[in-house]
Simulated scan of single mutants.
Amino acid sequence: MVPGVEIVVGYVFAWAVRKAGRIAGRLDGEVDRAVDAGMDRLHEVVGAKLGQDPALGMVVEEATAGREELTERTHRRLTDSLEEATERDPGFAEALAEIVAHLQSLQADRDADTADGAGDRINFSHGTFNGPVQGKGVQHIHYGTKPQ
Rank of each mutant, 00 (worst) to 15 (best):
M58H: 07
E83R: 08
R73D: 15
H75W: 09
L96K: 02
A95Q: 12
R18V: 07
V12H: 01
P90F: 03
G38Y: 07
V17H: 08
M39F: 01
A55C: 06
G21D: 04
A93R: 12
G57K: 14
Y11Q: 06
V8Y: 01
I23D: 03
D120R: 08
A34L: 14
G117M: 13
L50F: 07
G10F: 02
R67G: 04
I23G: 03
A37G: 09
E6A: 13
G57H: 15
A108V: 14
R67A: 11
V45P: 10
G119Y: 13
G66W: 10
H140G: 09
G135E: 01
R22I: 01
G131Q: 04
A20E: 00
S125A: 13
E68F: 14
G47W: 06
V8T: 08
G66H: 11
Q134H: 05
N123A: 15
F13T: 09
V60Y: 10
P90E: 11
L70I: 09
E62F: 02
L106V: 10
V2R: 10
L106T: 03
E61K: 11
E83H: 08
V35R: 13
G135D: 02
N130W: 04
E69M: 10
V17G: 01
L50H: 01
R41L: 15
P90C: 01
E6I: 02
K19I: 14
F124V: 02
P3R: 07
T86R: 14
L27E: 05
E72C: 01
L50P: 06
D32E: 15
G91N: 05
G51E: 04
Y11P: 06
D113A: 15
P147V: 05
V138A: 09
S125D: 12
G137M: 06
P3M: 02
E83P: 00
E98Y: 04
L78H: 12
Q134P: 00
R88I: 01
Y11W: 13
P3Y: 03
P3L: 10
E84S: 13
Q52W: 05
D32G: 15
I99C: 03
P132T: 00
V5E: 03
A95M: 08
Q107T: 13
Q52L: 07
H142V: 13
A37L: 11
A20W: 02
A34V: 12
G38I: 06
E68N: 10
R67T: 10
I7M: 04
G119M: 11
G10T: 06
G144K: 00
D109N: 05
L50V: 12
V35Q: 13
V45R: 09
S105Y: 11
G21A: 00
V12L: 08
F92H: 07
E68M: 09
T64E: 13
H75R: 15
G57R: 12
E94D: 15
V100W: 05
H126M: 12
P132H: 04
N130L: 07
G57S: 11
A14P: 02
W15P: 05
V100K: 11
V46Y: 04
T114V: 14
H142T: 10
Q134R: 14
G10D: 05
R33I: 10
V46D: 01
S105C: 05
L56I: 05
K19N: 06
K136W: 04
T128N: 10
